[in-house]
Design a protein around this nucleic acid. Structure first.
Lengths: 214, 214
DNA sequence: CTTGGAAGTGTTAGTGACTGACATATCATA
DNA sequence: TATGATATGTCAGTCACTAACACTTCCAAG
């Protein structure tokens, strides 16, 4: 568990950050989202609420940190791969890695973390603000994805086809993920389902069909 | 413009509600979302902020009222049509009506209203909270739509195919709408584009393809 | 090892969205 | 016109979030 941050300062930061997530995760699950104040969380981690807000932009961002992290990771992944690989391949790769990681967690991803993921829908779905926040993050991801694919295809950035494919990919990822979290631990293969959805989206939405009607 | 509410009380309510939307719309456009306080809006309409909050659940709901209204109308439309018509037909009909209304507004829908729609992206997209709120409403709509379609097809409510079709329909509606708002007044037919996207979604996502991989 | 500067944290004071309880005013209806 | 319902105002309060400033902790260069 010892973080491998080169400097002491970085290790400390990573530690408090992790603590904030862990504690908040537990409190949110116990007392609910609105039933837990930032002060409660900060007090238990032994920092001030202001410090907490230096780590996370908002209460929602803290609550959704474990769900937002992979989404932002995906954004970065798409930016990094940029020119070297086409966007769809980058997406497929990331979704696969992400699913494998959740299916059999490595030492980096603790079992507690995966366990927490499963309890998310019990308290996240209850609060409209949280649902909205998560949807907002997903929407931004969708736009990044659509723009990247439009660039690949060398079409205008608000290309309708790219937008729809991106929407299908993001929604599909979320849907498979939700189902996996809601149902029992090992109902079907998470990895297989994720990849299947990508194939389905790509195969089902040929550009030609849309252009004909446009 | 005189509201045809049967009772005086209802007419008053409708009037202040409309005033709140109009004033807020203008102020948000002028000073931005965060730059406008609820107090500013309430003062100009000559009510207290508490009264304002009795009309709208939150600042975001007020700001997005003109965008949320049709979405909720769509939800009700789907519920009403319920058993009489299949969900997809209900969706198609509503999207069509909605687009026609915007393309050539009737006396009920004022021209100012349509003009406001076009300036939305200038200040809504700037604020993550607003983007999130709107995305949240759309997500709920997507779920309602997916559930309804799953019932039509007599499959489990978390059916993956229904979810994906719903996602595509909602995203497509939004995309066509955004493009219409962003580009000039009459670039292409809004109605035709909306209907084309519905056809495209239905034609492109056959259940078989997904079932084969599931 | 020390020192200068950067980075993290605490403190304080404040804003603004939102809630609840209660009193008051306004309107519908009998 | 009287009575109950509904809308609004008033007051007090919570909480997320911001900004400015002082202080402590840590890194890195000399």
């Amino acid at each position: 568990m010892a973080n491998e941050g080169s400097t002491l300062r970085e290790r400390k930061k990573a530690k408090t950050r992790a603590a904030l997530i862990d504690v908040s995760q537990r409190l949110f699950a116990e007392r609910g989202y609105i039933g837990t104040t930032l002060e409660d969380i900060a007090a238990e981690v032994d920092v001030t609420t202001q410090t907490l807000l230096r780590y996370f932009d908002s209460k929602a961002q803290l609550a959704l940190a474990p769900l937002i992290a992979p989404l932002e990771g995906l954004e970065h992944h798409l930016e990094d791969q940029g020119r070297s690989v086409d966007t769809l391949s980058a997406w497929r790769l990331y979704v696969q890695i992400e699913a494998e990681e959740a299916a059999n967690p490595s030492e980096a991803t603790t079992a507690t973390y995966v366990a927490n993921l499963r309890t998310y829908h019990e308290w996240v779905d209850k609060d409209p603000a949280l649902v909205a926040s998560l949807s907002g993050v997903e929407r931004r991801l969708q736009q990044v994805l659509a723009t990247a694919m439009a660039q690949d295809a060398e079409v205008e950035s608000d290309d309708l086809h790219s937008t729809l494919v991106a929407a299908l990919l993001v929604a599909g990822r979320r849907a498979v993920w939700d189902r996996w979290m809601a149902r029992g631990p090992d109902t079907g293969s998470l990895v297989d389902d994720q990849l299947a959805v990508v194939d389905y989206a790509v195969a089902s939405l040929p550009r030609r069909v849309l252009e004909a009607t446009e």
